[in-house]
Design a protein around this nucleic acid. Structure first.
Lengths: 243, 243
DNA sequence: CCCGTTCTGTACGCCATCGAACACAAGAGG
DNA sequence: CCTCTTGTGTTCGATGGCGTACAGAACGGG
């Protein structure tokens, strides 16, 4: 800790082949982060990527009501700002220093230059992957903070967007597996939606009758994922069945 | 639904530039999936990637006690099997058909051929990203199924692996933010660990005294993430401070 | 048409976590 | 040394979701 930080203290940089590392190192800038420093906010364009050497950065998801959950943590083994090479440029999480220390910083463009050889196919795949990552992060948050009722709404909407009709063929048992809750919890939540006229449940068949109401009953997590998918992917998920 | 599926029904394929699509399409095989079909198990090497057209595939995380949680869902907007081009070849989740239908399948090698131009740097970044994705998935699962006590252990271990010492500078308030729980919950969990002699808590300073015991008290989530990081990344996170 | 299987609805006690409120202790700064 | 701020410990009632148990309904095959 007392010696001066070297780029190779970051395990990713240390693992680069000589030649790539030599191209990169001259562009790295040593930076010192205090506890609580925000590297970027949710939605910010990532201007630099950071290779921590002896600090820890949390990827925190902030909900609109102020509640939060850590999605992931990055230290000397990693890099902060994967959105740059995933292609999305920004993420839905905040990066905040959880343990003060140093990192090396690299301007976004210089990282992208290193990736010039991408085929368009690869770019597309990476962008899709980022949308998937968003979905995972949101799932983690949703698991922590939202009720079964809200999660069921979110889940129905996500599934609906990915299907060509307004009917799902799905037992409550299976939905419970997906959400990681008891089947009885799903029965109760689905019963409420049925009574509200939002869905119609018939032994393994769910028909969505009022999509707008479903969206109102859902937690914010659906909208976040939807918007991020629309932003990242070339073809928006059609939301045809709007009641 | 009644017409024959075309590769372009998948939005990613539809979004490819003409030239890339033409290279790809002849290698695509139309497959039909019943409900419940398992495309791959956790840990399997992914042999094909799948582009759904009118089915939905869930990425399910299965815990050792049989409990499960859906990490993500893939439909016509996506691709199943990102591990192939992320570089990890396998993932810690199971892919299971949640809504029967068709997809196009592409052998792994043919996808990788398309990516031949990768620099080694890119490959490294992608592999790291996969480890990050694992961490997210595990966080989602952990949020759903594990107690605050277990999660605190997991969190301490993850942080420890990413720092050069056995001491964390971190208030209970901040930990609570990270875990998405109340501060009081952290106080109680930390108090237990302190009484067990596993950690020593002193107003914003946590020293880990017995790492082995900490690992025993943690849920499985720590080990999963640790192993996946070690597998995917060139330099293993050192676990020097073992009591 | 009947019977077994699968799916859904409901009820009850239990417990982890929450929300709120408050007391106290350890440092930091003047 | 005193005071203010920040961090920690504890309590108490409320509650969402869990585990368990069981009954009825819908379907499907013989």
């Amino acid at each position: 800790m007392s010696k001066v930080a070297s780029p190779e203290d970051n395990l990713l940089i240390a693992a680069l082949p000589q030649e790539a590392r030599q191209r990169l190192v001259p562009n790295l800038e040593l930076v010192n982060f205090p506890l609580g420093k925000v590297l970027y906010e949710s939605g910010d364009t990532v201007k630099h990527v950071y290779f921590p050497t002896d600090c820890i950065v949390s990827l925190l998801y902030m909900m609109s009501n102020g509640a939060s959950a850590e999605i992931s943590v990055v230290g000397k083994e990693g890099i902060v700002g994967v959105a740059v090479f995933m292609g999305g440029e920004s993420t839905t999480s905040r990066a905040i220093v959880q343990s003060a220390g140093t990192a090396f910083r690299l301007p976004r463009q210089q990282l992208k230059d290193e990736f010039n050889r991408h085929s368009e196919f690869l770019n597309l795949m990476l962008r899709y992957t980022q949308s998937l990552i968003t979905q995972m992060a949101q799932t983690a948050v949703c698991n922590r903070h939202h009720s079964i009722d809200q999660q069921l709404c979110r889940w129905l909407l996500l599934s609906l967007d990915r299907l060509p009709s307004d009917e799902l063929i799905m037992t409550q048992e299976l939905i419970a597996n997906m959400l990681g809750v008891r089947r009885e919890g799903v029965t109760e939540a689905a019963g409420k939606l049925d009574r509200l006229g939002v869905i119609q449940y018939k032994r393994g068949h769910i028909r969505v009758l009022d999509r707008v109401k479903l969206e109102r009953l859902s937690c914010e997590c659906y909208a976040v994922v939807k918007e991020e998918c629309d932003r990242l992917l070339p073809t928006p998920l059609d939301s045809v069945y709007v009641g």
